[in-house]
């Protein structure tokens, strides 16, 4: 607190170059990623996905032995059991991601906005000359990095193990199913960000977004004809994409469009909610 420092710390002159909104957005994304890194989320979430990804092919591989050890089956049953196809195992892996993976992602993202607002940290950030789109967008972007990174790591591990133990699956099927499933998880994460803005309670946000996702896929499962175009059908399309017996009808394109529309809508609604409650801008 020296006097000379007082004069150097010129509060009057604007001595710095201004960066654009993009620069501020980049700074915010950087902060979010740093937070994910320091809280070890960027490490443990991919590890959990890798674990889930490896477990499916390994347990399929050992299933006959495990059954035999149990020993209650008559001779010959195991030998005659159909061996699972590699594609089948990968589709089962995606289903694992759809339950445990969804749960983990929703719980990891549940406090992304409400946590900062509840602690009061958000008010120090929101008085800065930033756009609310950048604020929500940066959190969303960081969560997508986590989601896509974890999904890709887990799915590629599953693919490698499946190729090793069960049977190879063409890489292009992996890529297409990964992209479709990634969109499905993106929808989940976006809804979690939205509910985290709307609700004070993180648990409420996780519950609501998982509920939405469950309802989407339930409806698409019950009414495949009427609601085949809805985002709930996406996970089904991803299973089909890897099973190679794809029946990508006209609906497939519409499912993607409707998912993208809901994602965009949820983000816009999150910004609107934040503006209404904090009234910045």
């Amino acid at each position: 607190m020296s006097v000379s420092a007082a004069h150097n710390g010129n509060v009057e002159k604007r001595s710095f170059n201004r960066t654009s909104e993009i620069g501020r957005f980049a700074a915010m994304v950087e902060k979010e990623l740093l937070e994910l890194l320091r809280s070890f989320k960027l490490l443990w979430v991919p590890l959990v996905f890798i674990l889930l990804g490896i477990m499916q092919p390994v347990s399929s591989y050992f299933m006959p032995i495990i059954l035999e050890q149990a020993g209650n089956l008559p001779e010959g049953v195991i030998a005659n059991m159909p061996k699972p196809q590699g594609a089948e195992v990968l589709a089962q892996t995606l289903q694992q991601f759809g339950t445990l993976g969804v749960l983990v992602l929703a719980l990891v993202c549940m406090g992304v906005v409400s946590g900062e607002r509840n602690s009061g940290a958000a008010s120090l950030i929101l008085v800065k000359p930033i756009s609310l789109y950048s604020y929500i967008g940066s959190k969303w972007t960081a969560m997508l990095v986590l989601t896509w990174g974890s999904l890709a790591a887990g799915y590629l591990a599953a693919w490698y193990y499946t190729g090793l133990l069960i049977g190879s699956v063409p890489f292009k099927d992996i890529v297409s199913s990964l992209l479709i499933y990634g969109l499905w998880l993106t929808l989940l994460v976006t809804l979690t960000v939205f509910f985290s803005t709307m609700l004070k309670s993180p648990a409420g946000a996780a519950f609501s977004s998982i509920g939405c996702i469950a309802v989407f896929s339930l409806l698409a499962g019950i009414f495949p004809k009427q609601l085949g175009w809805s985002p709930g059908a996406l996970s089904g399309f991803a299973y089909q994409a890897v099973s190679a017996s794809i029946m990508k009808g006209d609906y497939f394109g519409w499912a993607i469009v409707s998912a993208l529309a809901i994602i965009a809508g949820a983000l816009a609604a999150a910004v609107w909610l934040l503006r209404r409650s904090s009234s910045v801008e």
């Binding site: 070890f40 490490l43 674990l51 390994v58 591989y61």
Partner: peptide
């Protein structure tokens, strides 16, 4: 052979456990 297949699973679990 069984061990070499299962080992990565165990290692990843251990890493998670150690971080936790």
């Amino acid at each position: 052979q069984m061990l070499s297949i299962v080992l990565p699973l165990i290692i990843i679990q251990l890493i998670l456990m150690v971080i936790a």
